Simulated assay, not measured.
Amino acid sequence: MTYTTRFAPSPTGYLHPGHAFSALTAFKAARSHDGAFILRIEDIDHTRCRPEYEQAIYDDLRWMGLDWPEPVLRQSEHMADYQVALERLKSMGLVYPCFKTRKELMLEALSAPQDTPVLPPGDAPLDREPAWRLALTEARDYLGSRWEGLGFEEQGRGPNGEHGWQVADPSINGDVVLARKDVGIAYHLAVVVDDARQGITHIHRGHDLFEATHTQVLLQALLGLPTPQYHHHALLLDDTGQRLAKRKGSKSLRDLRDEGINLADIKALMANYAKA
């Protein structure tokens, strides 16, 4: 099987050096194994994604010397496929409707340690469409003895040094939302469908997504999809020790280029993290 990696950014802002580090890590891994590097555009959140950011992704990655097979898969063009996966989980009794708004869920999460309560369908507000959440208890019952065997091979290092076989614990993320009324299918479901569709064998990504792996491994098992091997890496930090992030206003690759920093400078910035 061909060693196949991917870089899957969302076009909700310009790429920063943290993105560059992740993309280069995946690209170099694919090249070192005579494998394939795939670019995927995760643009399911139409409320935040912008065409100019998507074009900037292509421009920045080409500036970095990366290349990838065409055409690029854009998730917004495959919503029907994700809906099929959701309907399958519905038919299996593994998801349930939640009529709470995002604000209500956030307030309840802050005020109570117990599971977020949901309104049964019969008591649903007439003016609300439900979000669909993964039902962990039913998923565990469905898998039976296979639940205990859920896990993934960590070839890199997790945020606490995790390495080697990791027993999956989907409860750390709770009953995650798999579909929302505002953007449709949510991240966890779309990503496992696409990783299987594109034959991804090795996933290189940052520590911030390590815990998401526990839920994604469960979805892979429920949908009969293969589980790739994972290679999580450290995150680039700013001068204050905070991780770089678009929502925090971290300087983008474009900003740095405008300041006269070249690709060699950016690669030097990442060198200290190469073994993390």
Rank of each mutant, 00 (worst) to 15 (best):
A124C: 03
H214R: 12
F21H: 10
T213H: 08
E104T: 06
H188R: 12
K28S: 14
G224F: 05
A268F: 06
I261H: 15
G151Y: 02
P17N: 09
G260W: 09
G206I: 02
N262S: 14
G199E: 03
L150Q: 03
F99H: 10
L110K: 15
W63E: 13
R31V: 04
F37W: 05
A135M: 04
Y187W: 11
W165E: 07
A124R: 07
R88H: 14
G249R: 13
H188C: 10
L223I: 01
Q166V: 13
W63C: 13
T12E: 00
R6A: 09
A36P: 02
Y82E: 02
V72W: 14
P121G: 00
D258G: 12
R40K: 07
R180Y: 05
N272C: 07
L24C: 10
D182T: 12
F21K: 03
R133I: 05
L73M: 15
D59Y: 05
L209F: 00
D59P: 12
H19K: 01
T25C: 10
A264L: 09
A196M: 08
G184L: 06
D59L: 10
N173S: 15
S91I: 01
T240F: 11
D194F: 14
D67N: 14
Q220I: 09
D123C: 12
V193T: 14
L222I: 02
D127S: 11
T215I: 13
G206P: 02
A245H: 07
Y3I: 03
Y96C: 06
T213W: 05
W68T: 09
D115V: 04
L189D: 04
E154C: 02
G206H: 02
F21V: 01
M106G: 11
I44T: 14
R133C: 07
A23Y: 02
Q55Y: 10
D238R: 07
G149N: 14
Y14S: 07
S252W: 02
F7W: 03
K248R: 15
Y58M: 08
Y96R: 00
L126I: 11
R88A: 14
A8M: 03
D255A: 14
K275V: 01
T47A: 15
F99W: 11
V95T: 11
Q114S: 12
R88S: 15
L73Q: 07
N160L: 15
A212E: 02
D195Y: 06
L94V: 05
E259C: 13
H232F: 06
H46N: 13
L178H: 10
V177Q: 04
K103I: 12
L119V: 11
E104P: 02
G35H: 06
A190G: 04
E77H: 12
Y273M: 08
H163N: 14
G122F: 13
L269V: 08
Q155T: 00
L24G: 06
A234P: 06
T5G: 08
M1A: 13
H33P: 00
T101R: 06
R50I: 11
